[in-house]
Nucleic acid binder design. Sequence first.
DNA 1: CGAATGGTTGATCAGAGTCAAAATTTGTGG
DNA 2: CCACAAATTTTGACTCTGATCAACCATTCG
Lengths: 248, 248
Amino acid sequence: MDGAELDAFAALLRKLNRVCALSEADEATIRGLPWSIESKVARSILIREGEHAALCSVLLDGYVAKGKTALNGSRQIVSFHMPGDLLDIEHVFFRPSDHNLHTVTNVVVARVAREDLRSVTLSRPGLAEAFWCSSLLDAAIYRQWLLNVARRNAKSRVAHMLCEFTVRASMAGLGSPAAFEFPMTQVEIAHATGLTPVHLNRIIGDLAEQGLIVRRKGRLSIGDWIAIQRTAGFKPAYLETNARVLLV
Amino acid sequence: MDGAELDAFAALLRKLNRVCALSEADEATIRGLPWSIESKVARSILIREGEHAALCSVLLDGYVAKGKTALNGSRQIVSFHMPGDLLDIEHVFFRPSDHNLHTVTNVVVARVAREDLRSVTLSRPGLAEAFWCSSLLDAAIYRQWLLNVARRNAKSRVAHMLCEFTVRASMAGLGSPAAFEFPMTQVEIAHATGLTPVHLNRIIGDLAEQGLIVRRKGRLSIGDWIAIQRTAGFKPAYLETNARVLLV
DNA sequence: CGAATGGTTGATCAGAGTCAAAATTTGTGG
DNA sequence: CCACAAATTTTGACTCTGATCAACCATTCG
């Protein structure tokens, strides 16, 4: 990860610039943030629910899932994250984490102290705005997932999750729908869609049979990008796909 | 609403101060924002999905629900709002609304132009921080709802929603658990919990039979505050009940 | 090569949805 | 204040999606 060390925050800047253009000075401030790089193997824990966090993480490489656990023990993934995402920016304000973070693949994160992020935020309004804007986009995604889990049947629910992941991945520069391979296991997709792994497996089977997705050695990819969006009822507007709002 | 006209933003200031203490100057800036008061009767629309919004709303009195519609027509309420809440602050950045807002009761809102909110935000870092922090709290609630809808059974799901509403209402100064009456219809509770109205009605019956809630002429209230939290598996930490973070 | 993890299949079951109708409550106008 | 209409709540009968339980296969990786 020498490249990352040279310009650790390139992906973050790319993401922030997409929603909310930054000034040169703002970019320089981000680049100047004190960070430390951490690598984690797949399926390891970054933060546990209830843990007090003094650091926030920026995802540089790999995929991460954010989850919550109910008192009865069942687990739900509430979001997936890709390079450039701020994983737990709420720790700038809130101490004990309301969620856990686990790595889906091998991962590289940059850790930044909450105080550093906060002071940067207070001194540079443009950065405060960009962080805020990015948090609002996260919230829009949560709303969509809520609709997804609450009101779509298993098949379109899974299709919708795959569509969203695909669009976000391609916005993050990770590949086009046709080429892209999903990094998560079926168990993780089940946890993210509110289904059981067994039922999810059957749904995956259906989707593959219709040619909407393709299974190759346990890896999933999109088979028919138009058709899967149709069965998902997927409209990407909520992702602010053509954002860079407020260029005013 | 003459009281409101005199100090329209008292509830908003109360809420922002709870999570993130404001300076005198910040408070004064908020009070100085140009606003216009609007009253709406119960069950009317404030904003429709897809609509371009030039104004943001602060809820001064009454209750509002935020909803989304799937392409198949089914509707989901993704959050409830109470006095002091910023109803659609995302319109500072994003144009077409990804959700609709409808009034649950008669309602008074203050409308503020997005440009005014934005410029206030750029000139006063303390306010940017407070708005951002409040958005992060909203996101924590979305995560909890996601867990709720995806992983709890109907009974504890409904109980959880009622617990959260109760705590938020009491934080907003609207009454204690014992005294508080829920303002929404069963159909609305069903829409918020991802259930059908028919099934919800049966769950309400169960909860009432166990004495957890009380039905009086179609109005619901809490019957046993300890017991309902237990069946909900409700832990209010995610609401930052004792917030006012970062007093540093 | 063998253990572990992840994926697949089958049989059965239950929680919540659907459809349909009746009973209550609420709101409105006379 | 009453009567009627509209909205909301309640009940019953039946169905179906997705959960559960229990094996068994396939890959990957040490």
